[in-house]
């Protein structure tokens, strides 16, 4: 990690958040308008801060920061081009899951710190959901790491120079995508913050800078989810003719657009259905995906 990369990551997070906001407008059928996004952001930032009069209010103030920190660090583990990496760990794929794991305490803190019944229940409800999402993510990451014989995301991209991993391991891909969408609160998995669920849930008390940070963190999470999906399953920077960085950007944008578009077309998942589907079907299927990963690692990649 060079001295410049923290700045590069922060710049990427800010530019990427803007891009995700514009993509949301396009997917919604509106004309993309950067000025509109900036106006909405300024409007949010001008709101007065709501401060709950409870003992644990510091959790309420800390939660958006933790959410943003988790999102930005998750973004930093994504291998964008062969040269540019923020946190280039030999266990980077696990580090990505670890950064996403801090979304859970952030939402719990937001709910508990607000000190009001709907928010507290919303926070606790998300803990149950998040545990259900976390298992398929980690297991799908294990499945793609096996053929590469490395947990380094860049090494997992390298091994896809001929065939993208989504074609070799469609089951792991099918499990990973909804799970990362859920962690990034993309509909139909936006239970922690949907207006129809517990009156907006854990984040509904936030206004002003708090709400701005939460919204920024969610867009960074979407970018990280799309980027990691492109890197781990769609061959990352590999592609003919165009430069590496452009391929990765195009794939990330396509994945993000597909995720956001799916969210607009599918009905919101119900909580009991979601928990049942995750524990009864997704976790056993993820074990099958790991078995399949072992098979292809030995039969094809050796």
């Amino acid at each position: 990690m060079s001295a410049a990369s923290p700045f590069a990551i922060v710049a990427l997070a800010l530019v990427g958040a803007m891009a995700v906001a514009l993509l949301e407008q396009v997917v919604a059928g509106a004309r993309p308008s950067p000025a509109g996004v900036a106006r909405a952001a300024l409007g949010t930032l001008r709101q007065p801060l709501a401060v709950p009069q409870v003992k644990d209010a510091w959790l309420y103030h800390g939660a958006p920061v933790l959410l943003l920190l988790g999102g930005v660090l998750a973004l930093a583990t994504v291998p964008w081009t062969p040269g540019f990496r923020g946190l280039d760990f030999s266990t980077g794929a696990i580090l990505y899951s670890a950064c996403l794991a801090y979304v859970t305490p952030a939402v719990l803190m937001a709910g508990w710190g607000a000190g009001r019944p709907l928010q507290v229940v919303g926070g606790f409800r998300f803990v149950a959901l998040m545990l259900a999402y976390e298992m398929p993510i980690v297991m799908a990451v294990t499945a793609v790491a096996a053929p590469a014989e490395s947990l380094r995301p860049a090494a997992i991209v390298e091994i896809q120079h001929a065939v993208p991993m989504a074609l070799v391991q469609p089951l792991a891909f099918a499990l990973f995508v909804p799970a990362v969408m859920a962690v990034a609160f993309i509909p139909p998995f936006d239970l922690p913050q949907a207006p129809g669920e517990l009156g907006g849930g854990a984040f509904s008390a936030y206004t002003g800078v708090h709400a701005g940070i939460v919204s920024l963190a969610q867009k960074v999470l979407v970018l990280g989810a799309a980027g990691m999906t492109a890197a781990l399953f769609l061959g990352g920077w590999h592609g003919p003719l165009l430069p590496d960085a452009l391929w990765m950007a195009l794939k990330t944008a396509a994945v993000a657009a597909a995720m956001l578009a799916a969210g607009r077309r599918l009905p919101r998942a119900e909580l009991p259905w979601l928990l049942g589907a995750a524990w009864k079907y997704a976790v056993p299927a993820a074990i099958l995906a790991i078995v399949w990963a072992g098979f292809v690692s030995l039969a094809v990649y050796q």
Partner: peptide, 30 residues
């Protein structure tokens, strides 16, 4: 590195579950 990353990953989930159980069982969770 591996232990560090694993510690970060596991502790998040485990401690949040612990908060869950402590709030469930304690007469005065707040």
């Amino acid at each position: 590195e591996f232990l560090g990353v694993l510690q970060l990953l596991m502790m998040s989930g485990e401690m949040v579950i612990m908060v869950f159980f402590m709030v469930m069982f304690m007469a005065d969770p707040g």
